[in-house]
Design a protein around this nucleic acid. Structure first.
Lengths: 158, 158
DNA sequence: ATTTACCCGATTAATTTAGTCGGGTATGTC
DNA sequence: GACATACCCGACTAAATTAATCGGGTAAAT
């Protein structure tokens, strides 16, 4: 089953767009510093997100990324699928050839589980995440941290 | 999230015990050949299963492993927990310190997902798997294969 | 005694993930 | 049009984890 930092980073970054992207494009550098994700790694992930048309890019100064659809219409499952290839608990990627060409003893169990997970994540939209209490709280903390960092920079310049 | 071959192997091996173990202990060598899992690897997994008291071992010739409880009372989630440590989709093992000491933006989402998966797998007993059509079918094929292998061996000896 | 099969730790090989690097290209601003 | 920004892209490296091997034990049955 694939569900690692890669998928978590992707969802986090997309949620960052949903939270802060309403006033124009967000640069990966912004996401990188807010969410503590390596910039180059983000570039790799966003290449995949762009191919799946989950985000739109705007080049040049002031550019960045925007969600290609409203947050109501983007679901967590799509994001993970885009970067992780698939959410799949079987060992044979659903091919049923897990035991030298045949179905292994537990194939259907993992297949059922995968479906279960996919269904769960297909129901969660970015917009619904934005609404959540816990997301709001973390976002508020991140905004604070961002401001204090700016202060530090300004003080250092002064 | 941890759900790899390790956990799949463990569940498959335990299901093998549930399927064939009613007439006495099953050796790891038997499981190894039936399910195509490396013997030494099985030994590692069964060390963990034994520690969690999911199986009982019988040493010496004719020995092997038995389920320590009836299949009705052993659940897939326990097996995976035993070998994989935990089924957990969060990056911080539920510690909520995913972003330098604080909760990351998507922590609760992964936490919810983990609970969902765990709940799903906690409901599936070995006994219920044994009953399943698809498991019966695969098991029948494995038995056939086993017999033909024996024939080959006997022919070779002859 | 000898064979079977569990027991255990250490080590290695393979795979995957995470991250880096170095170069490009479009675009807005002065 | 020079310059800075920020996307774009492929190749490479490092780290972590998983899967598997190896070598030597020990309990028990025949």
């Amino acid at each position: 089953m694939r569900l690692t930092t890669k998928g978590r980073y992707a969802v986090t970054a997309m949620l960052d767009l949903a939270l802060y992207g309403d006033r124009g494009p967000i640069s990966l550098a912004d996401i990188s510093s807010r969410q503590d994700i390596s910039l180059s790694y983000l570039e790799q992930l966003f290449a995949k997100l762009r191919r799946r048309e989950l985000v739109r890019s705007i080049r040049g100064p002031g550019g960045g990324y925007r969600l290609s659809r409203p947050g109501e219409e983007i679901f967590v499952a799509e994001i993970i699928d885009a970067v992780d290839e698939r959410v799949d608990a079987t060992g044979c990627s659903g091919q049923s050839d897990c035991q030298d060409g045949h179905t292994c003893l537990t194939h259907h169990l993992w297949s059922d589980l995968s479906e279960q997970i996919h269904h769960f994540l297909s129901d969660i939209s970015l917009a619904s995440l934005v609404q959540r209490r816990d997301v709001q709280a973390v976002s508020a903390r991140q905004r604070l941290r961002g401001e204090s960092e700016q202060t530090i920079v300004l003080t250092a310049i002064d």
